[in-house]
Design a binder for these strands. Structure first.
Lengths: 139, 139
DNA sequence: TAATATATTTGTAATCATTACAAAGTTAAA
DNA sequence: TTTAACTTTGTAATGATTACAAATATATTA
């Protein structure tokens, strides 16, 4: 379910979301830099091309993309939120040491609990913390 | 692994953590009100007994208890953090409508991913969002 | 017990990511 | 071309949390 760029554009069109130059560039950045960038990183990555760019625009664009269901926010506690255009169900791991966020494959839809039988579940987030293999091997 | 009150006190003693009157009252409140209270709720619940109580003290106490591994922070995005003295592995569900947080039974230790084989996992958090059964039935 | 050191609490101020807002700029429609 | 609708931008506000230092309480030592 990792959409191609064209599929993303198509979905936005379907939902009646206009893509201004700035919005297109933000989308582009997310698509080409699938490293869970922060608003700051997106800003720094684009401000050379768009010198007038404002962070408010990035926040605004991200909100639109999130509401359209095309981007997911990763709000690890104690750090800026990161943004993920990969909508495959998966978990996120944040390394205590290098602070990097890793995707890990897991089908969150398989997580069932009797306690939620009569609940309507909209979002399933799995956040792990610890030390990544790279940092472990450095010790 | 839901500790009794005495077991909690014992663990704190073992770890050399003093329990002042304020800290004891915060611990008490968490133990008696297992509703995932916020700092605000803890404050309002205790300020009548301890008129000089400061929120800083509550934050400070919670940090101590978290570091001692006796309390868990539940940082749902877009709302104050909640605090949970129930250390049984379980997930948390936040209702979009009534904003209440529900525990649900799930053994988070069973969530395995090949991608994390060489990672050291310290914390496993499962956060679901949606609408709870009570709010669904109100519609 | 008194004196001293240590720990804790408290209130205020600072922090910082995010949001609110309104003016300026852009694009589309009539 | 005029008007309306949308988008961007910069600044100011927000609000939970943290930093900090003075005040208070507790423990230790002589």
């Amino acid at each position: 379910m990792l959409l191609t760029y064209d599929q993303i554009l198509e979905q936005l069109k379907e939902k009646g979301i206009n893509l201004s130059y700035q919005r297109l560039k933000v989308l582009d950045f997310l698509y080409k830099n699938q490293i869970h960038p922060t608003v700051e990183q997106i800003y720094l990555g684009l401000v050379k091309q768009i010198p007038t760019l404002s962070k408010t625009t990035i926040y605004n664009t991200l909100k639109i993309l999130i509401n359209a269901g095309l981007v997911r926010e990763i709000p690890f506690k104690g750090r800026e939120s990161c943004y993920d255009i990969n909508l495959d169900p998966h978990g996120h791991f944040c390394c205590d040491s290098c602070n990097q966020i890793y995707d890990f494959q897991i089908d969150v839809n398989l997580i069932k609990s009797k306690d939620l039988e009569d609940f309507k579940i909209r979002d399933r987030d799995v956040y792990f913390k610890g030390v990544c293999s790279r940092c472990l091997s450095k010790i």
